[in-house]
Simulated scan of single mutants.
Amino acid sequence: MKLTQELKIPFGNAICYSGFREGQMPGGAVPSYEEIKEDLLILHKNWKYLRLYDCDEHAQIVLDVITQEKLDFKVMLGAYIVAEKNNFGCPWGGSYSEDVLKKNKEKNIEQIHKLIQTANRYPDIIFCLSAGNEACVDWTDHYVPVESVIDYVRMLKKATKQPVTFCENYVPWLNKLNKLVDELDFVSIHTYPVWEYKHIHDSLNYTKENYYAVANKYPNKPVIITEAGWATNSNGKGINQENVSEENQKIYYDDLIKWTTERKILTFVFEAFDEPWKGSNDPLEPEKHWGLFKEDRTPKKVMKHLYSKLTIKS
């Protein structure tokens, strides 16, 4: 509610969107104009806000489709910043040579400049900017010091008109990001009860605890949720298999939307479509199965009531 009052952003349904399909991935092959158009025509039925993680080719095509097809979306656009410091505590990597870290810093500055250029090119579509994603949490493989993030936020605020945030797991907001909060227009948190072994019937209360822990710490700063969702498959690594299903996803989604709509908390559901490129080669890798729609764009149980007549192009 604070967000709409202080930033004058109307409340609406919001979703994270990554359109990469089988054989496509960031840094590799990207979806075509027609593939992204297909996705956005699906999402346009139910969502007003899209969150994009970077400002590279995929994002540019999304913005082109929105513009050329005259679709009524507003976009949160991010800069995907990469490791500037080693994080030896990350269980899946996070150690780099000094040469790589130096080049990464240069890449990050380029990303921020690209975000500035894109934001100024599409001022009527891009409604807010993020200076990065999950780069300060203890387990990240692309760790960026808080001081660097503050520099990037200041660069964005100096050169653009949109409100600026940073997207991060709820935990760092409770301690290490205090100085960053002072620089932001609003705080963006991620909350994943299923990653923390919560039962489906405890999930909404846990999300509320995460949200209010941050919101109460910063009573004068708007707080939104930029990632919250429930996986539908798991190989048991990181998420208990008995905790994930399409039924559980629907329970969490319905409860989440009911609460956030009542409280007018802008919440980007994670994720629009399953992402087969993520994680290991195991088809049950949980990272691949967060979509409200399958990779072939057919709706999962949570969306079947809205998309019962959805026809997918072959």
Rank of each mutant, 00 (worst) to 15 (best):
P145W: 08
Q241G: 09
K85D: 05
Q24D: 11
K158P: 00
P91S: 11
R263K: 14
N205C: 07
L177C: 07
L306M: 15
I9Y: 02
F270Y: 08
I15F: 00
Y49S: 02
P10M: 10
A79N: 05
D151E: 13
N281L: 14
V187L: 10
I225P: 01
Y53D: 03
V146D: 05
N178S: 12
L43I: 01
W290D: 01
I150T: 05
V244E: 01
T311S: 10
P193R: 06
K309W: 07
F273D: 01
K102N: 14
T226E: 04
E295Q: 14
Q5G: 04
S308C: 09
E242P: 02
L204Q: 00
K114D: 15
E22H: 12
K237C: 13
D185M: 09
Y122Q: 12
E247K: 08
K264L: 11
P283S: 13
A131Q: 04
G27Q: 14
T67M: 11
K85V: 05
P145A: 13
P172A: 10
P91Y: 07
F166A: 04
A29Y: 11
D54H: 15
C55I: 07
V153K: 05
N281W: 12
K102I: 05
K313G: 08
S308W: 01
Y17C: 00
G291C: 02
M76G: 05
K309P: 02
N178T: 13
L71V: 12
D64I: 06
K102S: 15
L256C: 04
I66E: 03
E147V: 11
R51T: 03
E147P: 11
K45E: 10
K74I: 08
D99P: 01
F73P: 06
I42K: 00
N210F: 01
E168K: 07
F127V: 13
E209A: 14
L284G: 07
L310T: 03
A83G: 08
M25P: 06
Y252A: 04
V146F: 00
K221I: 03
Y170L: 07
K176Y: 00
T232F: 00
E38M: 10
G12T: 03
W277K: 12
S308D: 12
A231Y: 03
